[in-house]
Design a binder for these strands. Structure first.
Length: 636
RNA sequence: GCUGGCGUAGCUCAAUGGUAGAGCAGCUGAUUUGUAAUCAGCCGGUUGCGGGUUCGAUUCCCUCCGCCAGCUCCA
């Protein structure tokens, strides 16, 4: 196990996690909360100091150790089965671990079972795991003699003063800071999950190693729950749901990464867009439209041809002039801004556009609706004075929060993307501008007391940004809203406004989306709700199900009544049994089914069935409609 | 783009060096049904595109296109 930046830091010192004490603790404790001894609970601790340190596998850091040790166990098994294997790195990750290994032949899923079997054999051997510290030369010698060139490379790159340590279990030795469990015998509940390629040190110019992913938990039921979550994620995959619910498709004949919105998907999108427009107008935005292509000259001036060319579609020749397809809307909004003289009284100007852009994405990056080559951003650009910037950014954060909550996302994470100070040539603008812009964004987040994570090197070429990652029902994160500060384009296009002092001033510019793109947001929404959209978004809100042909006319009356109240209602008038109609409406995840037979006709009622709560019994039609309308209004 | 895997009917999948089969869907007919699948019949594929090997390819090989898992990159 190599040393990575992440692992080099000390373990979080939560009081409960690391305890000192006697050996009795393992007894009479349920497996879930089992305490095990580990060696070297803290970096730099002597063997004596850390003897007796204990870790709770159900704590985050304990789980990390468990998985890290399981990664070693896997590496040992692989070395036994494939003596030629050369070890890369093998860290614990968010829900498991992986190990990158250089093997002469590709592994297949069947090999995973063999490796797992060997892992279990090593567990049975209950090999003690022993730490050793050694001088750099000795470490190089050791791993050279063991034919581990990647480990040797890692040792060379360790800082001068680093303590170099190894962990040994039986014949297996790995470079690693630890800590680890005391022996292989305590590892039980693990599973190897998948195979993939991964570049050595994440650099595509390096050799590609084979990455084996696995996971481990303190208890079998937790491992089972993890596997069930993976299954659930497959079940609600937006690509599968998109097909099953007939929402969208991607047509090979048209090209990869291009989305076809089928009527039901288009309807949901329209609802989202209408809501979006109304909410923006309410908050002082104006809605605009702009073209899809523009002359190369414009993209030259905007800087896109310098900084973004590899993502742009080129080659349009119109009357001998080169045009490019827009990858962003900003230069167009800028041109509109410049179409007349602006006064300080006009600012802030907030222009929103559901603007469709095209960006080249490498084929391997494409993924359903989440990563496409043509998409519609819910874009807007705010032009404002310096004294308005803080409030404008705050206003966008409020709007993003409101929008996300309206769609059922009540958890999200904020990231502040900063430039990479080591690569200033990657960015437009001066160092001072960047410093100022970065601290402005951070200042707004801090004033709003929003917790965020700063990430260096993640900024756009024209300015720093705040990214919002949505957390869905399965706890997965998805990139959504983004707020980017731009001090580059106003400069390049010489944007001005006349100030109170009669002088010309430079406005500031904010690029922002609050959903991200219609495609990605829709995909995220689909997965979040597992296809069962809230009623206000459901393409079909009510399906009326006549039991026999006799009751079809009444069903049509019910439908007409509901449609009169703007409720999206359909009638399943097929000559089929009620069980089938219900089954299909359920599978289409339609929120309400209204069963109408002779009894309902006679009493002028409907029998309500809810997709989740089942049969709710008969009720008067207007009572039902009022309930649905209330639900729609509340966006539940 | 890279590594590995994959591409057979609208969908989910089976089979084979001797030109393919099931279920669902669709169509037709019968059935008039009370809360997750009524029955029967019929239709449906130059096995992703192109090339090669072979007496013969859907099966073996190569190119390309696309998909999947990652890596890299991003709304």
């Amino acid at each position: 196990m190599p040393v990575t930046a992440q692992q080099r830091g000390p373990l979080p010192a939560t009081g409960a996690a690391v305890k000192r004490g006697g050996t009795a603790a393992t007894k009479a404790v349920p497996v879930r909360a089992a305490f095990y001894f580990i060696r070297h609970a803290k970096e730099g601790a002597t063997v004596e100091e850390s003897k007796g340190a204990m870790i709770d596998f159900s704590s985050p850091e304990g789980l990390h150790i468990l998985r890290h040790s399981t990664a070693h166990l896997m590496a040992q098994a692989i070395k036994r089965l494939y003596p030629d294997a050369k070890l890369g790195i093998g860290p614990a990750i968010e829900d498991g671990f992986y190990y990158d290994i250089d093997l002469p032949t590709p592994l297949t899923p069947d090999d995973l079972e063999r490796i797992e079997a060997e892992m279990r054999a090593i567990v049975k051997e209950n090999l003690p795991i022993v730490r050793a510290e050694l001088p750099r030369e000795k470490a190089v010698e050791l791993f050279t003699s063991r034919n581990e060139p990647y480990k040797v490379e890692l040792i060379h790159d360790l800082p001068k003063d680093a303590v170099i340590s190894t962990y040994q279990q039986g014949e297996f030795i790995d470079l690693c800071t630890g800590p680890h469990v005391p022996s292989t015998g305590v590892l039980h509940h693990f599973k190897l999950t998948s195979l993939a390629g991964a570049y050595w040190r994440g650099d595509e110019h390096n050799r590609m190693l084979q990455r084996i992913y696995g996971t481990a938990y303190p208890a079998q039921e937790e491992l089972d729950a993890h596997m069930a979550r993976l299954e659930e994620a497959r079940r609600r995959d937006h690509r599968r749901l998109g097909k099953e619910l007939d929402l969208f498709s991607i047509q090979e004949e048209a090209g990869a990464g291009l989305i076809f919105w089928h009527p039901k998907g288009a309807l949901v999108r329209e609802i989202i867009e209408n809501f979006w427009r109304a909410e923006h107008r309410r908050r002082g935005y104006d809605i605009v439209y702009s073209p899809h292509i523009a002359r190369a000259e414009l993209w030259q001036r905007s800087g896109h041809l310098n900084w973004y060319r590899e993502n742009m579609y080129t080659g349009l020749d119109i009357d001998g002039v080169e045009y490019l397809i827009k990858p962003m809307n900003c230069p167009f909004h800028i041109l509109m801004y410049r179409s007349k003289v602006r006064s300080y009284r006009d600012l802030p100007i907030r222009w929103g556009e559901l603007g469709t852009v095209y960006r080249y994405e490498r084929s391997g990056a494409l993924h359903g609706l989440m990563r496409v080559r043509g998409f519609t951003q819910d874009d807007a650009h705010i032009f404002c004075r310096r004294d308005q910037l803080h409030d404008e950014i705050g206003g966008v954060l409020d709007l993003a929060d409101y929008m996300l909550r309206s769609f059922g996302f009540d958890r999200y994470e904020l990231y502040l993307s900063l430039r990479d100070p080591a690569n200033p040539q990657k960015y437009a603008g001066s160092a001072e501008d960047w410093e100022w812009a970065q601290s402005t964004l951070a200042g707004v987040l801090e004033d709003k007391q929003l917790p965020y994570k700063a990430e260096e090197g993640e900024a756009a070429f024209y300015g720093p940004k705040i990214d919002i990652k949505l957390i869905d029902a399965l706890g997965r994160g998805w990139q959504g809203p983004t707020i980017q500060l731009d001090f580059n384009l106003p400069e390049r296009f010489d944007l001005t406004y006349a100030g109170q002092d009669g002088q010309l001033h430079r406005p500031y510019m904010i690029h922002r989306t609050v959903l991200g793109s219609m495609e990605r947001f829709f995909g995220t929404l689909l997965e979040h709700h597992a296809g069962a959209f809230p009623v206000w978004l459901s393409p079909v809100q009510v399906m009326v199900l006549p039991i026999t042909g006799r009751t079809v006319p009444y069903a049509r009356e019910v439908q007409a009544y509901l449609r009169g109240k703007d409720i999206r209602a359909e009638v399943d008038d097929r000559d089929d049994k009620i069980g089938l109609k219900i089954r299909e409406a359920q599978l289409q995840k339609i929120p309400y089914m209204l069963v109408v037979g002779d009894r309902e006709v006679e009493n002028r009622t409907v029998s309500v069935r809810h997709r989740e709560h089942g049969d709710l019994g008969a009720t008067a039609l207007d009572t039902f409609a009022d309930g649905v309308l209330a639900e729609i209004a509340a966006k539940r």
